[in-house]
Design a protein around this nucleic acid. Sequence first.
DNA 1: CGGGATGTTGATGTGAATCAACGCGGGTGG
DNA 2: CCACCCGCGTTGATTCACATCAACATCCCG
Lengths: 236, 236
Amino acid sequence: MENPFVRKMERHVRLASEDRAILDGLARQHIRHIAGRQDIEGPHTEPYHTHLILDGWACRYKQFPDGRRAIVALLLPGDLCDPFVFRRARMDHAIGALTPVTVARITPDQIGDAIRGRPAIEEGLWREMLTTTAIHREWIASVGRRSAIERLAHLFCELHLRLTWAGLADGTSLPMPVTQPDLADALGQTSVHINRTLKELRTSGLVALRSRRLTIRDLDGLRERGLFDPAYLLPA
Amino acid sequence: MENPFVRKMERHVRLASEDRAILDGLARQHIRHIAGRQDIEGPHTEPYHTHLILDGWACRYKQFPDGRRAIVALLLPGDLCDPFVFRRARMDHAIGALTPVTVARITPDQIGDAIRGRPAIEEGLWREMLTTTAIHREWIASVGRRSAIERLAHLFCELHLRLTWAGLADGTSLPMPVTQPDLADALGQTSVHINRTLKELRTSGLVALRSRRLTIRDLDGLRERGLFDPAYLLPA
DNA sequence: CGGGATGTTGATGTGAATCAACGCGGGTGG
DNA sequence: CCACCCGCGTTGATTCACATCAACATCCCG
């Protein structure tokens, strides 16, 4: 199976075979396995490396003192946990594995080396970063102004495209390995209400979800329901 | 009055006087005035320049087809509307003036020139960007998991620090030129409820707000009420 | 001095939270 | 290999935070 990181970068820029080899090399060193529900990077740390997700899903989250949890980003295979480790900023949040996860540990120097003299790689990383920021904006808009069903539909549409570009979707069918409580923390709701909303999406014939796999039955309908416009995921 | 952009950059990095002169120069060219409620940058454009806010408040926002508006970021004096214009990405949102605004128009080349051979400036812009991203994460957490009163208290605390660093706060008293409908679109609520929440913050003695100026009466209390931890605004 | 946008308050409605109960499934330890 | 059990999914009953609707006060700008 091809490397989801390379797959995704090739959507941003045209890579020479040497570029591809360099990026692929990053993904083949210092492989680590992390159990589901474990932190990949705890809060308040100043990480020395970043992690490239190779398999499984993770999330950025903030934990409140009283137990509330807010998931502020989902990290899928091909995503870099922190492209900017080299700034050595202290973590203001944590990164946790939602499922068992395989990562490649990467040092800031390795990223620097990969960029040096490789404008396509640098450009690709920039675009990846712009996309990530656009996703953040969209999440703020979602949680702020979209209804429960719109939010869920929108998230499914986002994940559909992101997984497609990482080479992990099969047409309109995609892995969905997260629990309803996880979705609730990502969408700012309760798992009970996620469940009811999901039921509504199902009974209206837009999606099917079973054994951790989502099948989009009516892509146009789902996008309309979620006020989803793919433009924000397509920089440049 | 000193340039709020330079003020803020000096909080990130130590600037040589030449650095300071370069940054100050950026803020003194191509000054434009924009009326309140006008767009600085419309949606779907591919802007040729970025804008540095010199005076007044603006916002990034997304407009939904049915009229709903989500404000996804507030732009204060000293903020760059888009530090990454040089990537020429198509806007997936708009930038609008919330009050009358004075901006300096800056070309991508000027930013490139300012960075070249000036590591402090480059480092400062990076940190500025990391801070912006951290604010995005915090907003997602706010709208997702904070109650109405926590959200408003948290926003006030954020604005207090940002304005302080731009040299625009007077101790715990700060300009607050936005309307309650604007706050509502930023916090994902209605203006009516913002009004009631504000009243609650007032009657509990945490803040005073009149003639577009917020005075924080009890900073520790307000931070506690908003679950506010300033760490996220302090990269590195 | 007039009028539209904003601020304020009350009455009422509702989407989502909370509380509760139970089935199911997969992992674990005996 | 089976029994247990905890987390998850599902559904119903009830509550509540916030939205909606409405009326009026106030401010600011022309």
